[in-house]
């Protein structure tokens, strides 16, 4: 199958004269949509900036990448990137992205969405895409809450933390996202906070170059809802919390990555392994049963 021709996007020159640009990332951002809707102190912009930097660093051909988002604050990313992008329905970003990948195996598919979208309403797609090892990068910006709708409890809200729909404090244990990704079959799993911009960028570079289902969790402040309702200060205070409580443990067993309310956050690269991707396995098997007549793709 042919990859459809996209708009005339050129491969970024790593040392392009950034002085000519209004914004250093303007070649990948839709400047006509800026200013964005994210609140002061929010970390999603940092995650997007790190991602844009990673695209340059990884020398990704921008005509062969597609960004897919679901619904929520992070779901707005698809609308701000000057790349092929798809703003889908709540929870279904990975399902849409699966279709894109199997129809265009040459495309680099990136899902950029939030914890509520990917892990709650879309949790089913997350585990099954990992199980199949669909070749895509899933960036999960985790702010511990449904922020777009005003701070409701999510399956990532730490125990005892407050949210608008649990003013009595969260009583449900949250998902440990790297553990979920690992046990479902992801080949690359890392977690950083938006304080770790350089390491987050490097994780994106590695994951973009990795074949298979890759997950990068970017823990991000929600200064307007999560911090405020829990009286944790503003975005900068959350960054201080990350600074004082994040501990880098590359290769740590993903079982040990639970996040307690205002407790330690273990960050690092936890999984980097090889498994045949869905399209590779599919093509190989079809070639076998059809006696080599099957065309890849």
């Amino acid at each position: 199958m042919q990859t459809p021709k996209t708009n005339q996007q050129k491969k970024i020159q790593v040392d392009s004269s950034s002085m000519d640009r209004i914004h250093p990332m303007e070649n990948v951002l839709r400047m006509d949509r800026i200013p964005h809707i994210w609140c002061p102190g929010c970390g999603i912009g940092l995650a997007v900036t790190a991602f844009a930097a990673a695209l340059e660093k990884a020398e990704i051909d921008l005509s062969k990448i597609v960004i897919v988002s679901g619904i929520g604050c992070t779901g707005r990313v698809a609308g701000y990137v000057k790349l092929d992008s798809f703003h889908t329905t709540h929870g279904r970003a990975i399902a849409f992205a699966t279709g894109i990948k199997v129809a265009n195996p040459d495309m680099k598919v990136v899902v950029f969405s939030g914890d509520g979208d990917l892990i709650a309403i879309g949790g089913n797609h997350f585990i099954h895409a990992a199980r199949r090892n669909i070749d895509m990068l899933v960036v999960c910006v985790n702010n511990f809450i449904y922020a777009m709708t005003g701070g409701q409890v999510a399956p990532t809200t730490p125990l005892t933390a407050y949210a608008t729909t649990c003013p009595f404090g969260c009583v449900e244990p949250p998902f440990n996202i790297p553990y979920l990704a690992d046990s479902s079959g992801a080949v690359y799993v890392a977690r950083w906070t938006t304080l770790h911009v350089r390491r987050l960028t490097n994780a994106f570079v590695e994951a973009l170059n990795k074949k298979g289902f890759s997950v990068v969790e970017a823990i991000s402040p929600c200064a307007q809802y999560y911090s405020r309702i829990n009286r944790l200060g503003d975005g900068l205070d959350m960054m201080r919390y990350y600074h004082d409580n994040a501990e880098i443990r590359n290769g740590e067993d993903t079982k040990n990555l639970d996040i307690d309310f205002q407790g330690k956050i273990i960050v690092g690269k936890f999984i980097d392994r090889e498994r045949p991707s869905y399209t590779d396995r599919y093509n190989e098997w079809l070639s076998k049963v059809k006696g080599g007549e099957n065309e890849p793709g």
Binding site: I121, T149, G150, Q152, T164, T165, C166, P167
Partner: peptide, 20 residues
């Protein structure tokens, strides 16, 4: 319930009634 604009508030206020 599950949050969705613009109905979220109804259940959010209700959660507060539960809490109180």
């Amino acid at each position: 319930a599950y949050p969705i604009t613009p109905a979220t508030e109804i259940v959010q206020l209700f959660a507060k009634f539960v809490n109180d």
